[in-house]
């Protein structure tokens, strides 16, 4: 394996959790709900999936538990922001604080436990192809899952009736409600999906990325996922690109350090953030201003009668 291939593989690993979490958040935001609880849901996903995987000695059960944990947190969030029409920003932050705390309690007995690596795909012949073999045919299932998910979300939003309903609710919930569309139900499901994705991303962190659990291991990735949705202007294809741009910048700055350019490491560490701002700036210059923000984003829905 050449260095180039190896770097590409690392970039894929670094980008996948961001991509998964961002896709979930994207669906929630397209339905008009700003969910700032991603970080907390991700932390819960990481803790619960690891705890379940160790207890039952099964990665599959672990992943299921992570997804479920994210969804349960999302249901709590939905109860407050949909059921009571509470402020979304405040509630999302509260869910993050709650999730970080609760994940610490759940994970505490599992500090020091470890899991074996999740076996990557191996297709005889294809995986052994030079250069592209490992990259395209030798990843773990999460990576393929995240790409399928991207496609599915894109098709759902743009090609299905349900997707159209979700988008119109996100654009203007009052008129959608007037048309008889189920605003709260659609949003509830969208929030659940977002939570499940955040949980899955968390599971990826503790089961694949590091294969152990430690408190606060999400280390702000939930916030990056949120930012990437904005970066993508709420379009799935651009979430994919954004996640990989950010992942690549994260990994490449470490390589730049190892290659000894003599630039301050803090400057290199700032590269992913600078690159994202710059990329968004360039995109905005090309596509004009104010793209794609769902009209009702962050506004609580209370039907007027």
């Amino acid at each position: 394996m050449t260095t180039f291939e190896a770097i590409l593989l690392t970039i894929v690993t670094a980008s996948t959790p961001l991509l998964i979490a961002s896709l979930g958040e994207l669906v929630a935001e397209r339905s008009g709900v700003l969910n700032l609880g991603v970080e907390g849901m991700m932390a819960m996903g990481a803790a619960c999936s690891f705890a379940a995987a160790v207890t039952f000695n099964s990665t599959a059960i672990g992943v299921g538990a992570g997804v479920l944990a994210g969804a349960v947190m999302a249901a709590l969030f939905a109860l407050v922001v949909l059921g009571f029409a509470a402020n979304q920003v405040g509630s999302g932050l509260a869910v993050t604080i709650f999730g970080l705390g609760l994940s610490g309690l759940i994970g505490a007995p599992f500090v020091g436990a470890r899991r074996d690596p999740v076996a990557p795909l191996h297709l005889p012949g294809l995986t052994d192809l030079p250069v592209i073999g490992r990259l395209f045919f030798g990843q773990d299932l999460f990576v393929y899952g995240s790409l399928v998910l991207t496609l599915a979300v894109a098709l759902y939003l743009n090609r299905t009736r349900a997707g159209l309903i979700l988008r119109s609710i996100g654009e203007n919930h009052a008129s959608a409600h007037g048309l008889g569309l189920p605003v709260l139900k659609t949003r509830f499901l969208a929030i659940l999906f977002g939570g499940a994705c955040a949980g899955l991303a968390g599971a990826y962190l503790s089961l694949v990325y590091t294969r152990f659990w430690s408190p606060g291991m999400t280390a702000g990735r939930g916030w990056i996922a949120l930012a990437l949705v904005v970066f993508a202007a709420w379009r799935p294809k651009w979430v994919l690109i954004g996640a990989y741009v950010f992942g690549a910048a994260t990994v490449l700055q470490l390589h730049a350090q190892a290659a000894q350019f003599g630039v301050p490491s803090q400057l290199l560490s700032a590269v992913p953030y600078l690159a994202t701002i710059l990329a968004l700036l360039l995109l905005s210059l090309r596509h004009g201003r104010a793209i794609g923000t769902p009209g009702s984003l962050g506004v609580p829905f209370v039907p007027d009668r």
Partner: peptide, 27 residues
């Protein structure tokens, strides 16, 4: 000797990336 700074005491995923970067560079 090759050195990579994680600029963090504690971010397991980033530490993993830093380790991989070094391994990828022949360490």
């Amino acid at each position: 000797l090759k050195v990579v700074w994680a600029n963090s005491w504690y971010d397991p995923a980033k530490e993993a990336d830093a380790g991989k970067a070094l391994l990828d560079q022949g360490v």
